[in-house]
Amino acid sequence: MPRRIVIGIRGVGHRVIDSVWRLGYASRFFLLTLLKSGTSFRRFGLIIRELYFTGVLSLVIIVVSGLFVGMVLGLQGYETLQRFGAESAVGTMVALSLVRELGPVVAALLFASRAGSAITAEIGLMKATDQLAAMEMMAVDPIARVVAPRFWAGVISMPLLAAMFSIIGVFGGYMVAVVLIGVDEGSFWSQMQDAVDFRYDIVNGIIKTCVFGVAVTAIAVFEGYDAAPTAEGVSGATTRTVVTSALAILGLDFVLTSVMFRGMS
């Protein structure tokens, strides 16, 4: 029996040391990526290529989901607000929920599962098929040539995608509340514009998306680069990207919200 306990404690210690080591390794990798980003900006074509894969190819899912989320917000908002006779505030509700929370968070979650997993799988497969080793043997640094452009493309795409998500969502809410249900169009927009402050709501929302963009792509490139060079290794890394990104997004969202939105109407 005491032997079992010792083995158990040893297991816990092993896990802790392992995860601390991995965290340190990941931070070091992140710093290296930043340090070696010069090439990507000198040859911006590298980033443009990755913008196509992370940004343009994520457009459809972002636009469609944004529309539906906005429409649901319109329905639910109307349903709740009309009990208090405040159905004209539905625009405010839709816009504030999207700009402050749902836009950044849902867009980042979708981005992690669409683009983040693709980045991990691509880098992981390049590793598994010796492409990274071949590059290294050609005296080309894979972090500068493969990792950094993907990282920056993700960081650039994320705020743009989230902005599109929010604006399409507002449009979806407008479709449901104004066009379908018949809330007054003027009060829909004017109440929204009264309540949504540019600096307080919109800028803070954009800051959130930038943070999420850095977190998601940093996780995605690290998991890809760190993947075991086998089919199972790559699929496991892809799953880890989505799970870790989701947890990071929600955790960071809480931290950022508690720092940003306190006081003021």
């Binding site: 816009a95 700009v99 743009l160 929010s166 604006i167 929204m192 514009q193 949504v196 402050d197 954009i206």
Partner: peptide, 11 residues
């Protein structure tokens, strides 16, 4: 989209 957010949705 960012501009629209600032001008149409925001104040």
């Amino acid at each position: 989209a960012l501009l629209l957010l600032a001008l149409k949705v925001g104040n």
